[in-house]
Every structure is written in structure tokens, then in C-alpha cells.
Design a protein around this nucleic acid. Structure first.
Length: 817
DNA sequence: CCTCGCTTAGTTTTT
DNA sequence: CTAAGCGAGG
């Protein structure tokens, strides 16, 4: 379908055809940014300027008076994406973005639930459980109800509960087919009761409760339906069932089997970049959206502004092997660029070493910044060997994907104390710190306490008074400590509260005496800093400080006040819950309700919803290392993709579930399209996995790339293991050696020659079948077989102590005995 | 309460 | 192989 046929470019009804903010957009982008009338699906390929279109559209809506800030809802998956949108938007328009609902699904749900906590049947200060907290809550529950952890691991129950919520299912909605299932549903219900009692919600609950609020409360639903005339959804292919249903509630009503909508939903996504099916994402939402919303406008953004065509051709060719696509082909005006370089190594060690050498030369000879070089891999385990090599070579690197700031143990402890100040019934927090730092409250005491709490149907905190004896005394002093802290921090600033808590709780003292506590104390100091900037700076202010109505109108653009779709914010709306002023703490006002919220609650919410950056060390210019998943949305001048082997990429575990291979291929597609200028693909014949050397067949993905776009740095084999007739993946056969086209020139001289049939090569290494050899690590062994030439040569050796191993002779030092 | 040693698992991950 | 989690023992 050609978008240009479907859409005339804006015929300039409002005289807005020449707005400066629309300058530089291509036809498709312009059409997408200025869509009018109804819902639309935008298929935005990688590097096609998706974020630009989204932000330009918002700016255009505002500037032309088609919408006021309060009438816009834009939802993303990550805080990073939301932030980026806000940043770009403020750069485009001199507007105050506070009134707009721009954020993550969970952030917006939180916002809605805070505004309607009564209607949603939640305490005003409800706290959010992150994944860790949820698991410990479930463990506690399982212990309490004596669930056999062998039969039902808490992790599995957590998975079950989250899965149900993502589908929009309450315990009563789940159809249990067998006993085991019924047990899970029962526990799901008990978990729900527990959360409600404690005044906490998990991530799934945030979404589900917000959805139910809209579904079951007509005035609130209609209020938001009227308000949000313009909705934009980013990364639509990653939405799950519940998120789709949530959007549908906001967008319109079912009237007599017909979906009626007065708003415009613009869904932006790329089915080829759907890589989160494993966690509940439903690409099918795209098709459902088109059908149920009766989408008549579809635009494809296929012009890529990122990569050269050799890279794009590779991506296009690869993804064409998937069926079930909406269909899309990236193109560029940038010319072919350099060929995609492909390298095969004998071992993972050699692969890492090769990458390091290449990286060093990229920096030295080609002048690339280290931060513009990324190494991508399928699984985290692959990073280690590369880290070692980079470290030894003295190349600075940065690994993404570790623990995030708010997930660190010491931070979680500190937050638990803070949560108890706001909500003493938060048993998860209570359990976390009741004996941390150690204060002589052991397992037996807490067990007793839990029994007491269960019997009385109250929180652990309230059950403390019931416990007698010495244990009771210790518990009571803990509770007293919390109470005193709460008392004395009333009316104090957030910073003062946290600093006081750190001392009173004994956390600081504890970490001072601990041998590796210095870092932790630094982190706790950073927590104070984070809180400080949260209160003073944009972080909190942007999200929760009220904007006077007149300011809203002022920051809109000419005409916005009179705009027919002007909804503005309506603090007087009767459906909103009544304000509860908090006199003690500096007022922080919910922009939607005018309610005040204590800075502490707001900060705790922030901590739960935004776990912080998940990168190790920031700062200096470093080579970037991350999983392919983590690379989504990023781009680099140079990209290395390592471990292109069957079983690793595509990953063997992914092959069992239906559609698994296609998702792996999309993952590879994402990886390839991260590269701007140069792309390196690498495969290794052997890899250490779980302590043993594994033999791998080259990834089928390499065979799915167009020969003309590639340059093999090492000879291309017809498929590894073909000499043994066993492991070869069937695709390679005629795939062609690249000997002719002048490729292979940078390979060691040995490889320039016509390939020699495997077994007949004269072994330069002098290792023959039957020989006894010595290996530094494995000792003496007997050679069972030899194959390959040059750096590919390998021998199968039986070591009495370590079993039979395949060793690459270019790497393993074997001496004939 | 802490530490040592054993067992066990070992894709991808945001909120 | 290696990291994490758990149980027993000091």
C-alpha cells in the first residue's frame, strides 16, 4: 500500500503548510505528523525518524491549535523514550510540558490511580512493588500457606500472577483446568488480598487497576475519553493484551457491537522489531488495532537515515525470511558504503581477540570514538570473555545491563525504611529491614510475628505488641525507632528525612564497619542527592507540580484557548477525588486533581517506576557492550555482532516455542540496523559453554544475508563440520566462497589459496591421528582425529582425566610427546 | 549471626 | 565454568 495514494498531503486548510517545525520532513513523515481524522497505524522502520515524527506531531497539534497540552496523551515503554520525547518537544516549542500526559504506560497508570485513588479503592499513599519486592511478597505468602516450594516455586507463581494480570485476568476470570492450576489461582487470590491489606501494588496491578477503573467507572472513563482527543503510542508492537485494552477504554465505547471513538489514536510501531513476545508483547495488537479501530490510514516510514545500503540490504534480506510480516523495506540515499565484514574464528577466545584488535585499529587508524563502537551479543554470558580481552588490551569499555541504582541492596534497604514511615503496614518492607542492620531479631522471632499477624489479620507492624518476652522487646524497640523517626521527620524536607533515617536506622554505621561498605555508603549519599534533585529539579516538578489554568492557556499557542477540541485540565471536575491537604510537608500538587502529595511518597513512587540507569560506570569515552535487546533504539557508527552460531543466535531455547525462530531473526534484524557506517559479524567454531567446549555450526542468519553486501575476512566454509557429515546446517552449500571478488584480501596470506578439501591438507602443525600430545591444562592425551587447515585446524583429543575434547590448534598449545 | 561449602542452573527485560 | 542461593555448622 502506498501511503501517498492514501493521503493527500495536508491541503493546508488551516494555513499551516509552512510551519517551520515541519521543515525537513519527507513526504511520509509529513503525512504521519499531520494526520487528521481518526486512527492511524504508522509502520516505522528502524532509523526512519520515528521519534521525530511523534514529537513533530505533538508540536504541530499544539501549534495549530488542534489540541491543548492537556488533550494529549503519549505513551511509551521506557522512561528513556518518554524523556527523549519531552526533551525534543521542549526544544521545538516554548511550552510547558507539565500538563501533558507523556510517559510510560505504568507512569500514566500511576498518575491516574493517584488522581482517583478512592474510586480505585487504593490508599492515597499506595506503594509500588518492583519485581524483587513482588517475589519476596510471594515467598512470604507461600511460607504462610505452607506451599510446597518444590511443587510450586515462588518464581513460577510470580510468573503466573504477572501473566494473568497482563492478560487482564483477575483470579475469578482464570479457568483452572487441573489441581495445580487451581492452587495457583487460589494463591493468586491470596496474594491479591495480601497486597490490598498492605496497601501495595505491583507493576501489573498498576495497569490492571487503571484499566478496571476506566472500564467500571463511566464518569471517569468519559472524562478521559473527552479529554484525550489525541493519543500517540510508541513501540506499539511491544504492547501486551492489557495495554491494548487500556488504550481501547480511553479511545472509545462499544455501542451495540460497534466501536465508537471520538479521538485519534496514532500507533507507531515496527512488527519487524518485535522482540519481546517472550514477556507478553503481542504483535497481533497491530492487526487487532487496524481491525477494531477501523484504521483506514496506514503509513510506512521506509526511508532510513541511519545506515548505508549494504547494511540495510543485509537487514532487508534477512527479515524477508520471516513470514507473517506486515511488509516493509528500508531504503537509503546514502549509497552502499562499506561491505558488511564477516569473520569466523576458531574459538571464542580468538573471536574476542580479533574484535579487540579490530577495535583498536578502528580507534587508532580510522579515528572512531570509542563510544561509537558497540559490541552486541545475544546473551549476557558472552560479555565476560570480551571484557577480559578489552581489559587486558587496556581499552575502556562499558557494559550495559547490570544492577540499576534503585535496585541495589543498600538502596532497597533505605527505601524500605522510608516506606515504613509512610505505610507501616507494608510487610515486605518490614521484613526487609526488621533485622537489617542485624539487631538480634532472628528467624524464629519473625516467624512468631507472622503467625501472630495472620491470626489477628493485621500487619506485622501491628502484631508486634502481641509478641511477648525478650523477642517482643527487640521488636518493640524496632517499631519504636520507626515511630520516633516518623515523628521527628514530620515537616522536614525530604533530604533531612533521608539523612536522619540513614543515621537512626543504623545503616550508615553498619556499612562503615563492613569491609566493602564504602561503595555502599557512597550510594546512600547518592540517594540523598537523587532525592534532592528530584524535589528541586524537573524530575518531580515536571510530573506533579500544578500549573495554573491561565498558564496552560498562555503556553499554548494562538487559538488554543478557543480551539474546538480544547479540554484543558479541569481540576473542578466532580469525578475527581477530593483533595487531602498535607499541611506538614511542602505541598506538591497533583496537576490533575490539585491534591497535595507528600514529597516522600512521590519520591518512593519515582524510585519504583524509574529504577535508574542500568549502566555500570558512566563518564569517559568507552566501547559500548550490551545485549541485542538492550541495543534497541540505539545506534552506533560501528557495530560488532558476536556469537553468530546455531544454538546461540538463534538461541536454542527460542527454537522450541512457535514463532521462536522468527523472533530470533527479528532480533538479528534489530542488531544489524543499529549500525550506521560499519558492521562486523562474527562467528566462532567453538565456544566454552557451561564449562565444556562446544562445537557450533555457523548461524543460519549468516547464510540469509546477500552475498554482494558481504566481505568475508576469513574463508567461508560450506558449513562447519561438513567434513564429518554431521552438524552442517543445510543452507550453506552453494552459498559461495568469496574468493573471486577481491574479498578476503585482508586475511592472512595462507588463505588466499584455493580451498583444499579438508582431510587432505598437509598438517603444518605436525599433529597426527594416534599421536600422544601434551596440553598445559588437560595433561597428556591421545589424538583421535585431525581436521581443517591453518587457523581452522583442530584435533580431537582424548584426555584420560578430562574426557574427549576438540581443540583448535591455532589456540590450544599442543606438543607432541 | 555469619561463613563456608555444596548444589544447581545457566536467554532476552521494562515497568 | 561460575555465580547465586541455600543449608549446616561454628
Amino acid at each position: 500500500m502506498d501511503s501517498n495514494d492514501l493521503f493527500a498531503l495536508p491541503s493546508d486548510a488551516g494555513g499551516d503548510g509552512h510551519l517551520p517545525l515541519l521543515n525537513g520532513l519527507n513526504d511520509e513523515q509529513l503525512a504521519a505528523a499531520t494526520l487528521e481524522g481518526g486512527h492511524a497505524l504508522i509502520l516505522a522502520g528502524a532509523g526512519s525518524g520515528k521519534t521525530r515524527v511523534l514529537t513533530t506531531r505533538i508540536a504541530w497539534l499544539l501549534q495549530t491549535g488542534r489540541a491543548t497540552p492537556g488533550g494529549i496523551l503519549a505513551v511509551t515503554f521506557t522512561n528513556k523514550a518518554a524523556k527523549e520525547m519531552l526533551t525534543r518537544l521542549s526544544a521545538m516549542l516554548p511550552i510547558n510540558v507539565r500538563g501533558m500526559w507523556i510517559g510510560t504506560f505504568h507512569g500514566l497508570c500511576n498518575r491516574m490511580l493517584r488522581a482517583h485513588y478512592k474510586s480505585a479503592n487504593l490508599p492515597q499513599t499506595f506503594q509500588i512493588l518492583d519485581t524483587q519486592d513482588q517475589l519476596s511478597a510471594i515467598k512470604r505468602l507461600c511460607k504462610q500457606f505452607q506451599v510446597d516450594e518444590e511443587a510450586l516455586p515462588p518464581k513460577q507463581l510470580q510468573y503466573f500472577i504477572s501473566g494473568c494480570k497482563e492478560e487482564g485476568l483477575r483470579p475469578s476470570d482464570v479457568q483452572a483446568r487441573d489441581m495445580a492450576e487451581r492452587k495457583k489461582v487460589e494463591l493468586y487470590q491470596l496474594y491479591e488480598d495480601q497486597c490490598l491489606r498492605e496497601g501495595v501494588v505491583d507493576f501489573g496491578e498498576l495497569m490492571l487497576r487503571s484499566y478496571e477503573l476506566l472500564r467500571d467507572n463511566a464518569p471517569i472513563r468519559q472524562h478521559y475519553q473527552h479529554r484525550f482527543r489525541h493519543m500517540l503510542v510508541d513501540e506499539f508492537q511491544d504492547t501486551n493484551r492489557l495495554q491494548y485494552l487500556w488504550l481501547k477504554q480511553l479511545a472509545g465505547e462499544m455501542v451495540g457491537g460497534q466501536f465508537q471513538s471520538h479521538s485519534s489514536v496514532i500507533a507507531v510501531g515496527d512488527d519487524d522489531q518485535s522482540i519481546y513476545a517472550f514477556r507478553g508483547a503481542r504483535v497481533g495488537n497491530m492487526q487487532d488495532f487496524v481491525r477494531e479501530f477501523e484504521v483506514r490510514q496506514q503509513i510506512k516510514l521506509e526511508q532510513n537515515y541511519r545506515s548505508y545500503s549494504n547494511i540495510l540490504d543485509s537487514a532487508n534480506a534477512l527479515i524477508s525470511h520471516n513470514s507473517n510480516r506486515l511488509g516493509k523495506n528500508l531504503r537509503t540515499d546514502q549509497g552502499p558504503g562499506e561491505p558488511v565484514r564477516v569473520s569466523e574464528s576458531a574459538t571464542d577466545m580468538a573471536e574476542a581477540q580479533w574484535m579487540v584488535e579490530e577495535i583498536k585499529s578502528l580507534i587508532k587508524s580510522d579515528g572512531f570514538a570509542r563510544s561509537e563502537i558497540a559490541v552486541l551479543y545475544r546473551s549476557n554470558a558472552q560479555s565476560r570473555i570480551l571484557e577480559t580481552s578489552l581489559f587486558n588490551a587496556g581499552v575502556p569499555y562499558r557494559v550495559y545491563g547490570g544492577l540499576r541504582f534503585f535496585e541495589r541492596a543498600e538502596i532497597k534497604h533505605a527505601l524500605a525504611y522510608l516506606r515504613l514511615l509512610e505505610n507501616p503496614h507494608d510487610d515486605t518492607s518490614f521484613m526487609r529491614v526488621v533485622n537489617f542492620p542485624p539487631r538480634g531479631i532472628g528467624a524464629r522471632t519473625t516467624e512468631q510475628l507472622q503467625e501472630g499477624a495472620q491470626a489477628a489479620g493485621c500487619s506485622l507492624y501491628d502484631a508486634v505488641t502481641a509478641v511477648a518476652g525478650k523477642a517482643g522487646t527487640k521488636l518493640q524497640s524496632f517499631v519504636a525507632m520507626i515511630d520516633v523517626l516518623r515523628e521527628e521527620t514530620q515537616g522536614k524536607t525530604l533530604r533531612e528525612t533521608i539523612e536522619r533515617m540513614l543515621v537512626v536506622s543504623g545503616l550508615i554505621e553498619h556499612y562503615q564497619t563492613e569491609k566493602e561498605g564504602a561503595d555502599r555508603i557512597d550510594n546512600l549519599g547518592e540517594l540523598v542527592t537523587a532525592a534532592e534533585s528530584f524535589v528541586t529539579q524537573e524530575g518531580f516538578g515536571r510530573d506533579a507540580v500544578a500549573i495554573p489554568l491561565d498558564e496552560q492557556q498562555a503556553m499554548g499557542v494562538p487559538g488554543s484557548g478557543q480551539s474546538p477540541v480544547s479540554q484543558g485540565l479541569d481540576p473542578d471536575a466532580p469525578l475527581l477525588d477530593t483533595p487531602l491537604p498535607d499541611a506538614a510537608n511542602p505541598a506538591i500538587v497533583n496537576p490533575d486533581t490539585g491534591e497535595t502529595l507528600s514529597p516522600l511518597v512521590a519520591f518512593l513512587t519515582h524510585a519504583a517506576l524509574e529504577a535508574g540507569d542500568n549502566q555500570a560506570q558512566g563518564g569517559q569515552d568507552a566501547v559500548q557492550m550490551m545485549t541485542v535487546h538492550a541495543s534497541k533504539g540505539l545506534e552506533f557508527d560501528v557495530v560488532f555482532i558476536g556469537g553468530l552460531e546455531e544454538g546461540l543466535f538463534p538461541h536454542e531455547n527460542a527454537m522450541t516455542d512457535t514463532g521462536g525462530l522468527e523472533e530470533e531473526r527479528r532480533l538479528m534484524y534489530v542488531a544489524i540496523t543499529r549500525a550506521r557506517k560499519r558492521l562486523y559479524l562474527s562467528t566462532s567454531q567453538t565456544r566454552m559453554l557451561h564449562g565444556t567446549t562446544r562445537y557450533n555450526v555457523r548461524s543460519r542468519f549468516l547464510d540469509e544475508l546477500p552475498e554482494t553486501a558481504l566481505k568475508w575476512l576469513t574463508p567461508r566454509h560450506s558449513g562447519f563440520g561438513s567434513g564429518m557429515g554431521s552438524l552442517a546446517y543445510g543452507g550453506g552449500g552453494g552459498g559461495g566462497r568469496s574468493s573471486g571478488g577481491g574479498y578476503g584480501d585482508s586475511a592472512p596470506s595462507m588463505w588466499g589459496k584455493t580451498p583444499v578439501p579438508v582431510q587432505k591438507a598437509e598438517p603444518a602443525h605436525g599433529i597426527k591421528k594416534g599421536a600422544n600430545v601434551f596440553h598445559n591444562k588437560f595433561g597428556e592425551g591421545k589424538v583421535l582425529a585431525v581436521e581443517g587447515t591453518g587457523d581452522d585446524a583442530r584435533a580431537q583429543v582424548n584426555f584420560p582425566r578430562h574426557g574427549t575434547k576438540w581443540l583448535a590448534l591455532s589456540v590450544a598449545k599442543l606438543t607432541v610427546v
